[in-house]
Nucleic acid binder design. Structure first.
Lengths: 152, 152
DNA sequence: GTAGGTGCAAATCGTTTGCAGTACA
DNA sequence: TGTACTGCAAACGATTTGCACCTAC
């Protein structure tokens, strides 16, 4: 899903929400980023060009997107209050711990399904969902860290 | 690792911490549970028998155990402020969303390693760590839910 | 004896709520 | 026009900190 202005407006209206300038601005800003963001990150990135938008509205838009299933949480790195716009079906994250970049990968990995079956057999659990995140350095940050620490 | 009193004392002292009665009490209570707990859960379970132990001390002991690598976080269910005592090497969690029970399973699953290799090849990421949690109903809670909702 | 640990109260942080004014449909 | 939305300020809950007293070593 691409979040251009018209798309955002139609998604909001289809779900009975008003397409206010604040919502459009916040969602466009959020969708622009390929990194995970906290509410405060998002607020900060809006502050310069849109000082009139308050933190409370950022929280409310994130909450709204959550109800529409358009955000997903990022768990790695301590707290779980980091968000990434969700443009796909159930998927997993590959995170760069240095620059915060997020890459999605699909959930229907045969390896993962096999593992889940094995665990079900062994434990008798009725598995409903799962969380999987890989954390490391993206190619660019990895390159930079090599320049600083050649041995790593 | 079994957390009997002597073991706890020696771990604390080996790392330069004092073995105070409060610490021993809190760690024993924590180690007794096979569920994930929030700091408040742990505080509540101590309150009856040890009303003299304050919430602040619970936080400080959890922090101490964290620094010693003896707790792990549970991510599922929204916030990440749930803890489980860590008695093993790097591992993953199978959580019951109803009763909170946690079962560990080892990390060296060939399926998972294959998947990680594949992702490394495709993306060029230098993967350092990962989070994997399966969430569902344990056999007992699953049985109970069947009695209430036979179709599920 | 002393450094480290504890408990209280206050401070702090992130997040949510009440409310009056505003603007989209 | 009416209802949903916004922004401010205040409230709130979880966690951390300052400080005086205490205790394990």
């Amino acid at each position: 899903m691409k979040f251009n202005e018209d798309k955002i407006k139609s998604v909001l209206r289809q779900n009975g929400y008003k397409a206010t300038p604040q919502r459009l601005t916040i969602i466009k800003e959020f969708a622009k980023s390929d990194r995970f963001l906290t509410p405060a990150d998002l607020y900060d990135s809006l502050k310069n060009n849109h000082p009139d938008i308050g933190m409370v509205t950022v929280y409310r838009v994130l909450d709204l997107l959550d109800r529409l299933g358009l955000v997903c949480k990022v768990h790695a790195g301590g707290d779980c209050q980091k968000y990434k716009i969700n443009t796909a079906e159930h998927h997993h994250h590959l995170l760069c711990s240095h620059c915060g970049m997020v890459i999605n990968f699909p959930c229907d990995e045969p390896n993962l399904e096999e593992l889940m079956e094995k665990i079900t057999d062994e434990t008798g659990f009725n598995i409903k969902t799962h969380i999987l995140e890989f954390v490391g350095l993206c190619p660019r940050c990895n390159e930079q860290s090599r320049e600083i620490n050649p041995e790593s």
